[in-house]
Design a protein around this nucleic acid. Structure first.
Lengths: 107, 107
DNA sequence: TTTTATTATCGTAATATTGCAATATATAAA
DNA sequence: TTTATATATTGCAATATTACGATAATAAAA
């Protein structure tokens, strides 16, 4: 049905799935990598960097923003986007936890 | 167009996006959590654990398997699935790298 | 061999995602 | 105020994902 049965799962399971979904796209991975690369918090020249049209980039940025993975502040004519490290830390911890549990297992 | 322009991005970007896509679903998050919880490597009673039909679970397991996140070995009548820790470590390292880079920035 | 249990595949319906052209909005500069 | 620049929104087409019933495939047990 194309619809995920979110009600059937815990809030935590849905939360992590939503965070990962926001990152699970090569364009959005590239946006994150670009934001990491540039020294300071960068604005809309992501459009010049990536081979996608401006509305497409804007849409990807919106999804990342909705997931709280990036945040944008208005700066004159343009908008300055940057990564929300708290959210990234949350994701990192999730996988750290998985790796820890895996160390005590065999397969 | 519903189609991701994979050709426009690097192999690394596509790889991480595909790994995260495989994990970016609450049912698959739940499957991973279940595989982590049970002491030994467990078989198809994931179906009894989750509120989804058997073909749906089978499909999710296939996606996780294709992404190399889990692996299954035939064991008599049933199949024993378990998490591939190498892949999980790879994902963990990716987020570790992001967090590290973020520590040297401000926003 | 027949039965039973376990997992996979097929086909299909409902919904979601991706991408872009066209256009709107917002703000700075002239 | 007009113009230019930057970003967002709308609408749509193409494709992907999710879920499941029906059914197939596989292998142990009877």
């Amino acid at each position: 049905m194309g619809i995920t049965k979110s009600e059937s799962f815990t809030d935590e399971q849905n939360e992590i799935a939503n965070l990962l979904k926001a990152l699970a796209n090569p364009a959005r991975v590239a946006i994150i990598q670009y934001l990491l690369k540039v020294d300071s918090c960068i604005c809309g020249d992501i459009v010049n960097e990536l081979p996608l049209a401006q509305p497409t980039i804007s849409q990807h940025l919106k999804e990342l923003k909705n997931a709280n993975i990036i945040q944008g502040t208005i700066e004159g004519k343009s908008i300055c986007y940057c990564i929300n490290s708290e959210t990234m830390t949350k994701i990192e911890r999730y996988f750290e936890g998985i790796s820890l549990k895996l160390k005590n297992k065999c397969c």
